[in-house]
Nucleic acid binder design. Structure first.
Lengths: 114, 114
DNA sequence: CGCATACTGAACCATATGGTTCAGTTTATG
DNA sequence: CATAAACTGAACCATATGGTTCAGTATGCG
């Protein structure tokens, strides 16, 4: 259960940066080298490499170095867990709000009778 | 579009901590005071207050202080955006993998004809 | 070989994060 | 009124994050 939590930590943390979300979208269109990505997001090679490292660590991206070039591509579908967490939580959330809706209805009735 | 990105940053960042995810789940069951939450997660009041602050900042939680007690409850459904981003991305992801399947097929054909 | 390309690693920097303690303030309650 | 409870804010700490520069290493190409 702890590992599961850590995986979620890593996934959500990886998604919490706009540049990294952009990289994921970019890689959704086509594989790219570090240089490609660095240029697209106007950043140094070193900086982009760190972002890719974070994504790779989270399992969202895989990379392979062939010759001089490291090619980045989308990794296995690690977002399933994150999506599942949100989904599970939304159900809970909805249940909670349904409860609140009832309270609101109750208040409306009361204000009318005043 | 920038605000939208920042909202996503905040949502995902808020979810990237196991304690905060736990707080959300806890609040899904019932509203709670800072003291309640601090005890549940074995943490100082001050520490918990910071976590609640992060969740509130991200719009995932709202709080109201009545008398001495600040009551925390789930906020408006801010996770919709986050869920939507992941969902949109998953479609892209699936498309990408389908595409790759096609490329693989293409390569198989070529290698046969060579 | 010689040079350019593509990446890598170390070091550095400013700021953020996750936590603490300690010293208040405000609000019950006996 | 006195004391306890519940929170708040400031200060501090260690570590992480997001970025840079600089100095390499490894590879491809003419």
């Amino acid at each position: 259960m702890v590992q599961y939590a850590q995986a979620l930590d890593a996934s959500f943390a990886a998604l919490s940066d706009a540049t990294r979300r952009g990289v994921l979208e970019r890689l959704g269109r086509a594989d790219a080298s570090i240089t490609d990505l660095a240029e697209t997001f106007d950043m140094t090679l070193t900086g982009m490499k760190k972002h890719v490292g974070v994504l790779e660590q989270a399992g969202l991206v895989t990379t392979e170095k062939i010759g001089r070039v490291r090619t980045c591509k989308l990794g296995p579908r690690r977002l399933e867990e994150a999506a599942a967490w949100i989904e599970r939580f939304r159900e809970l959330w909805d249940a909670r709000f349904d409860e609140l809706d009832q309270v609101v209805e109750e208040l409306k009735k009361r204000s009318k009778s005043r």
